Simulated scan of single mutants.
Amino acid sequence: MTTNRGALEVPYTGGEKESLHASLQRHRDAVLWKLEGLDDEQLRRPMTPSGTSLLGLVKHLASVEYGWFCSTFGRAVEPFWFDPFAGEDMSAGQGETTAQIVDFYARARTAADRTITELSPDELGKSWDGKTVSLRWVLIRMVEETARHAGHMDIVRELIDGREGDHRPG
C-alpha cells in the first residue's frame, strides 16, 4: 500500500511482525531514494567533520542488516571486504564502486527479509556482543537504526543539492 506521496505505509491494523517489517521497508526505501540523481562524487562526498557520506551510510546499513538479522540468528553472511568493527563500514573506499555498495545493501536486505519471513518474533538469537535477543527486538532496533540514518541522509542530501523530503514523492 502506498500513500499519495509514494511511500509505503505501515498497515493500520496489521500484525506485529508485518507492521515492523513494513516500517523497516519504508525507511530502507527512503535510504535508496536519497541516492537517486546524484553522481559518484556527490554520493561519496564527506559532508560532516566525521566524514559522513551518503554511500558510507548505505554501506553501514548493509553491514548492520547482515549482522543483526543474519549473524544473530546463525544464518549465512557474505564475506565483508572491510572491517565494520574498525569503522570501515562508514565510508566508501577508493576501490569500492557505488554499484558494489548498493548491490551489497540489496543482498543484505534480501538475506534479512528471509530471516524476518522465516522466524517468529519470539525467536531468540545471540548478538555480536553476546546478548540474547528476540527477532522482535532486532526488528525494533533496525527500524530505529535505519530511520536514524535515513534522517542523516535527509540532511546530507539537502546540503548536496537542496533536495528535501523524507520519502519519494508520489
Rank of each mutant, 00 (worst) to 15 (best):
R44Y: 02
E65G: 01
L43G: 03
L61Y: 08
G56P: 04
D89G: 10
E96L: 05
E65N: 11
G56S: 11
F69M: 08
L55E: 06
V64T: 14
S91T: 13
G95H: 12
R109A: 13
R109K: 05
D113W: 07
E41A: 10
T98F: 06
L38W: 13
T48Y: 05
V58W: 07
R44M: 10
K34M: 13
G93P: 03
L55C: 03
L57P: 00
G37M: 05
G74N: 12
S71W: 09
D39W: 01
D83P: 02
D39Y: 00
I101K: 07
D113S: 11
Y66G: 01
C70Y: 03
L38Y: 11
A112N: 04
Y105F: 15
V102K: 01
R114P: 07
A62F: 06
V58A: 13
R107W: 03
T48V: 01
S71R: 14
D113I: 15
V77T: 15
K59T: 10
V77Y: 12
Y66P: 00
G51Y: 02
G95Y: 14
V102S: 07
R109F: 00
F69N: 01
D39I: 09
W68K: 00
T97N: 08
T98Q: 10
G37E: 03
P49E: 07
S50K: 12
D113M: 12
E96G: 09
G93E: 07
F73G: 00
E88C: 01
S63D: 10
K59A: 14
A76H: 13
D103N: 10
A108L: 06
R107H: 10
V64E: 15
G56M: 13
A86M: 05
T110E: 15
